[in-house]
Every structure is written in C-alpha cells, then in structure tokens.
Design a protein around this nucleic acid. Structure first.
Length: 250
DNA sequence: GCGACAG
DNA sequence: ATCTTGTCGC
C-alpha cells in the first residue's frame, strides 16, 4: 500500500495518549466520503502470543460485493504496551499498520475489530486508523465499550438494529448480523456515515456473526500463531492420515 | 466511593 | 486478548 506520513509518535504515556485522542477526534469525518463504487474491502485484526510476547496482525483484502479473498498478510512485532481500556489503538495500531502495508491493492474501505467513535473520547481504533491512512473505516466490535442500547427493541432477526446511545447522543448501533446471536456494535470509523456503516457491515455478513473481512482477519491472525503441540498424534496411535498431520507440525 | 471497562 | 467442556437452541 502507498506510504503515509506519520501523524504522531506511538510510544506515549497514557496521559499523553488521552490528550492526543481528544485532539484527533475533532478531525474524524462522520459523513460519507468514500467511493460510490466500493470494489475492495480490507479487514484487520490482531492476536497476541503469550509464549513469545509477539503481536500478530492480519490484513485481508476482499472483493466487493462478491467477498472473494484476494490478499492475506500477517505482520509480527513485540507487544508494545499493556491493554488499557480506551487506549487500545496505541497497543495494536502500529502492528496493524505493518500488516496493511503489505497489501498490493489499496482498499476502498477498511473494517476494524473494535470501536470507531463509540468511545469515551470518540476515537476508537477504527477512527484512529482511518485518520492515519485517510481512508474510510468502520468499527465492528463484539461488545460495548461506551454507551447503551435497548435490548428489548432490538429484533431477533438478522438485519435489525437499534442505536447505541451515550447520554442521548447516537454514537453507533447494535446490529444483529445473525439471528438470535449477540449483536455486533457498529460505529463510524472515518469518512462514512452510521447508516452506510451498518449497510456495509450487513452486506459483508455470510452466515456468521462477524462480517467476512473481520472474521477472516481474525482467523488469520490466530491460525499461524504458535501452539503447544499438546495433542500431537504419536506414532502408532494416530489416525489414518497421521503422516499428513505430522507434516503440518514441522 | 463504586461500577464499567473494545481487545 | 486468552483459557476452556459442555451445552442450549435454531
């Protein structure tokens, strides 16, 4: 992907990071400024390997609307800082940017595992990433960080949604991406409206709770991570294709 | 002081 | 995020 000019330093103290978030939040664009024809959507996620202290970010690129996987990349680096609610982007974004940098094709839209503006200072990881790259982004979180929604009014069928409110302000939406399953928390990342964010989140779902871009990135970030071969089949007591399985562990 | 708290 | 078995429901 094209090179971008760094917006700021990463290794900041929590207090400095919070001040920076407040400043950056005012630059987030909450209306549609994305291509009328979306052809490629990227998904990013990150997993951490407790064994070696490495963070592994994954970036996938899907065609839209067919959602065919066109690119998949991973990027690893040592974990930078501990997890602090509200400061997730300072822990994960540097590594995520490393993975996105490996894309050959620049995406028209990026879906991020985490909040957009549904955040205490309105600068969740999706918004932060959108500002850094100056690309449209959507926050697709699995749970609420900030705000509340009315569970009673949220229908049980896929496609239904209710606003996520923070003291009366609409900061996102609880979106049912699959019937009878806990809703996703969708919010504006950057250069997109909430209505459009919900539309793309839903149109990227294929029977799972997570939209495909985020789901595939999530899977990729975890799959190649180090795993203790606790259940490795031993010679003689394995299955018919034990030889094939053994080769997978080398 | 107490509760809440993306990943 | 990660750990971790079974279990409930469409």
């Amino acid at each position: 992907m094209r090179a971008v000019h760094p917006l700021h330093e990463w290794n900041l103290q929590p207090e400095q990071a919070i001040a920076l978030q407040k400043e950056l939040a005012s630059r987030v664009i909450r209306e549609d400024r994305l291509p009328s024809q979306i052809q490629h959507i990227a998904g990013v996620d990150l997993a951490i390997n407790e064994n070696n202290g490495l963070a592994r970010a994954a970036a996938v690129l899907l065609s839209y609307p067919s959602l065919e996987l066109e690119e998949q990349h991973v990027y690893e680096e040592p974990v930078r800082m501990e997890y602090i609610p509200g400061l997730l982007s300072f822990r994960e974004l540097p590594c995520v940017l490393g993975a996105l940098n490996l894309l050959r094709q620049e995406p028209d839209l990026i879906m991020v595992d985490g909040q957009g503006i549904a955040h205490p200072r309105r600068l969740g990881i999706a918004s932060h990433l959108g500002l850094w790259l100056d690309l449209p982004t959507i926050g697709c979180a699995k749970s609420v960080l900030r705000g509340h929604y009315n569970e009673q009014e949220l229908g049980a069928t896929a496609g239904s949604w209710v606003p996520l409110l923070d003291h009366g302000e609409i900061i996102g939406a609880a979106v049912r991406t699959r019937e009878h399953v806990k809703p996703m928390i969708i919010s504006i990342g950057h250069r997109i409206s909430l209505e459009t964010s919900i539309r793309y989140a839903l149109s990227c779902c294929r029977g799972y709770r997570l939209p495909e871009p985020t789901r595939l990135a999530d899977r990729l970030s975890k799959n190649n991570a180090y795993r203790e071969p606790a259940s490795r089949p031993k010679e003689g007591q394995d299955t018919a294709n034990g030889a094939v399985q053994d080769s997978l562990w080398q």
